[in-house]
Write a protein that binds this DNA or RNA. Sequence first.
DNA 1: GTCTATATTGCGATAGAC
DNA 2: GTCTATCGCAATATAGAC
Lengths: 185, 185
Amino acid sequence: MIGLRASTRLSAMARNPSDTKERLLDAFDILLDKQGISGATLDAVAAKAGVSKGGLLYHYGSKAELIKGSLERLDRLVDEDVASMKAAGDRLHMYYLETSAETGTPLDRSLIAASCLAQENDEAKDSLRKTREAWFDALNEHLGDPDLAMTVQLIGDGMYFNQNFSLSQDEALKHVKNVLARLGL
Amino acid sequence: MIGLRASTRLSAMARNPSDTKERLLDAFDILLDKQGISGATLDAVAAKAGVSKGGLLYHYGSKAELIKGSLERLDRLVDEDVASMKAAGDRLHMYYLETSAETGTPLDRSLIAASCLAQENDEAKDSLRKTREAWFDALNEHLGDPDLAMTVQLIGDGMYFNQNFSLSQDEALKHVKNVLARLGL
DNA sequence: GTCTATATTGCGATAGAC
DNA sequence: GTCTATCGCAATATAGAC
């Protein structure tokens, strides 16, 4: 058992929920999503991950380091997402909008956590800015039309933003697809 | 002077920056916008409004009451905004998108403050939900097409959401207008 | 690697003077 | 209506045992 974990490569460890550091990031992101910044205290994060506060602080020496860990994981997940978009070929923009409406995925949780942090953390703002740029570039390269690319991205942003406030995102997606059809998309 | 303020009607007082309660709400909203929830402490709000913490707590007996005051003001501003939309006649949807890109207005500040609070306050979430419903109803009644109404609203939401992350909103608005033209709007 | 203290700071809220 | 002083509490972070 110990030998197995010792030989596990980093790329695999990054997704292993039995890894304490990863479990701490999961707990942090989930608490940010569900209870906001003031709910994501070190005590609460540690408890949710099943360790003590001291245990948490062994892995992440400060709250700033915990935030940094969360944002670095977001960067990795976005890289993977852009690769998935490109793998969708002709349907790249549809894949983008459909996954904008998706909830509960690791990327979604990471994104909500980051936009929560962005409220008072400039590094989180930077991460989100870079994420947006990567998505726009992929959309623009695919559609060959900055007007369409930006409009599709804004619609996706709107769907993401309104997860908390609107009716089902499936409903919203249906309306949007009807309009995109009129644009030949 | 005292006689003047004593005879001031409520509707006027609500906008009078020399009124302490209104100044406190301004300070609260601005601090929420610029520094997030944890920056909008009672001490900071009081200082920005030019009173002491005790002075603040005379007008708003708790932080919960301060939040309530901010959300109630948002409701009033949204009512006025919907009236302005309807006054725009044929250009209702354009007015909506153009003002979605606007920053620095009282409504804009109130909205950002509420979406900041919504992160961990259910009443703020409700206020934003009601706001969205009022806007959708106005758009849908004007356009006579739920698909278009929802798409326009999502684009507006996206523009609002991305104030912090994207290039100028004027640029975004230009792209969007090009696409709307293709839809006969 | 994980735990239990404990030090320290900063916030919300109360009390009472002016 | 506004102020200062103070209490109580919760959050970050440290120290040191196991």
